[in-house]
Design a protein around this nucleic acid. Structure first.
Lengths: 341, 341
DNA sequence: CTGAAAGCGCTAACAT
DNA sequence: ATGTTAGCGCTTTCAG
């Protein structure tokens, strides 16, 4: 079938050992032997059998990357950066989609009946709690992604959600808005992100001496455009509707913006909107979306490097990395002179 | 280290063969033996070593999925569907990102010095021509995705681009528009998609008795929002600007829409816009985007099934599948009463 | 510097 | 129905 080391060895008149040495390049080989072997390698078109190598070495050279949904722009953008960073480190990425379902996350971690194909996992979890994840993972190195509180047994990279949410809310306060709503509340057990961002929001209101009006805290089932659209409609139907809204991610914000505009609301005059994630759509929407910009490149890079460290038996205790973020002020909160773009 | 078949065999007092049979479930095993083995399996927490199994079987159980960019919404949405379809067929997906670079596509196909990890590949190619791909692939089963002319040596799934582009253009004609521009022209060697969609566009104009005005055919470097924005600015600066534009994908259209609105143009009154791909953003933009809707679920499903057929040594000659498409008419071409949405 | 050979964990042919 | 064992292709220990 395909060309093996043995075939090459026979052709070059050397042992398998020598061919292996030439291919791997780790051991010194006599120049003339080397060139002879290389000629045979070339002639026969040898390609290493990755599986055999892996079996011998006990590793697959693969890392898993698990997101709830690949077509959520924030995840897609992060996936892109992670795949690129992985390639630069010689790692290949197996992609997994949990659909936010506990059974799928569980199967990923414990390998299940089908076994585990990757050496380590970068996981953006929705359904499972940190303790459960740590238990299930066993020896499998894990880097948790995304927005959750630190955990003593799991590596984690994300940003400071409370601080970021506070910055977003303070921006709305600084514009003189006083009825500032929030969209994206969820039960804390279900979604830690929501909990942290809600805290930043409420803290900022408190600091500004504004009350936290529960009727302005909109719960949503999920974080898609449609959820944002539904939430804003409910808010706009209130006796005294909000004059600003902080959405816990950009998709919610874009959905809310669309629905508000369709409702005849002017943005930002009647309603200022801030999002979170800086997905590309928000830079091209009309109006463009003010949002929290996490440094995705940095998140990706650090996640891959953390995992790499674990893979080389780094015994250090769980590490936490908080990436940079900033607020990008755009047209959904501050009216601009008409410009090209 | 980890628990092997041998460990389980020892514990249960049977041979590895028997344990293997229990695990795989392909051979009949006496009920009491089975339960004894299962107890040991459970007790020791056996997990199959996927690599060893693969080595023995000569397959990895992995398929490759290669896109130029994962964060382009059309690719992200397709990736989601393909990953899901793959899981349903017991396949795991290795994701590759070519960045549209020839060297990366080439490395994917010939395995390069690092060998190939997957059994087959679903490839959305940008840089390489079909002949080259077929040559490089050798025995590696390939399913080509996307928008290119059929090829006698490669399986392919996509939609009829000429027909779809024609439908899009005819829609604009039917609205009484007469200066219909197109955005997304590229050199045919660089991008077959562009070529096919341009043909559909020009055919439709010809059928309607409209001239193909070369000044209305806008070339772009790529297919991102920014390219669409730049192109529409050039078109709007013409002595007699277009009253409609067909963009060769939705990102171009969304970029063009944004720039046109910023330019003070009313959509659809002054300028009607049609896109291509039906990405989610276009369903929530303001105005919402009229577009060609390819059946992505079907594309994903057929692609995976075609590959699966090849993997089981299906010797049939190259197959072509054209998935359904339809035109979704939205606000960027037809003004609607204000609605909740 | 290079050859011989063990063995990674599993499946499947062969034997009973 | 189950035990024994060769061998998938590679890396690496042990000799030389």
């Amino acid at each position: 079938m395909s060309v093996t080391l043995r075939d090459v060895a026979l052709d070059a008149g050397v042992s398998v050992r020598t061919v292996s040495n030439v291919v791997s390049g780790t051991v010194r080989v006599a120049p003339d032997t080397r060139s002879r072997v290389e000629a045979s390698l070339q002639k026969l078109g040898y390609r290493p059998n990755v599986i055999a190598r892996n079996l011998r070495q006990g590793r697959t050279g693969l890392i898993g990357l698990a997101f709830p949904e690949l077509d959520v722009p924030y995840f897609a953008e992060l996936a892109r950066a992670i795949v690129r960073a992985s390639r630069e480190h010689g790692l290949t990425v197996v992609i997994e989609q949990t659909e936010g379902r506990e059974e799928h996350e569980r199967a990923l971690l414990d390998g299940g009946a089908r076994g585990t194909v990757f050496d380590g996992l970068i996981l953006s979890s929705l359904a499972l709690g940190a303790d459960e994840i740590a238990d299930l993972a066993g020896n499998l190195p894990i880097v948790m992604l995304g927005e959750r509180a630190p955990h003593h047994r799991l590596d984690h990279v994300g940003i400071d959600n409370v601080a970021a949410a506070r910055v977003a809310t303070e921006h709305l306060v600084s514009l003189g808005r006083s009825r500032i709503a929030a969209i994206g509340y969820q039960h804390p057990k279900v979604n830690e992100t929501a909990h942290l961002r809600a805290r930043g929001y409420e803290d900022a209101l408190a600091d500004a001496g504004l009350p936290v009006d529960r009727s302005l805290c909109a719960y949503t089932d999920a974080y898609h455009r449609e959820d944002g659209a539904q939430a804003i409609r409910r808010l706009l139907d209130l006796p005294s509707p909000p004059d600003a809204v902080f959405c816990f991610n950009d998709l919610l914000a874009l959905g809310a913006m669309r629905a508000a505009l369709a409702h005849g609301v002017r943005i930002p005059q009647d309603l200022a909107i801030v999002g979170f994630d800086d997905i590309e759509d928000g830079r091209y929407s009309t109006p463009t979306l003010t949002t929290i910009v996490p440094d995705k490149e940095q998140i990706a890079l650090v996640a891959v490097e953390m995992l790499l460290a674990r893979l080389s038996d780094d015994p250090s205790k769980a590490r936490e990395h908080l990436a940079r973020f900033e607020l990008a002020v755009r047209e959904s909160t501050v009216r601009r002179r008409r410009r090209r773009g």
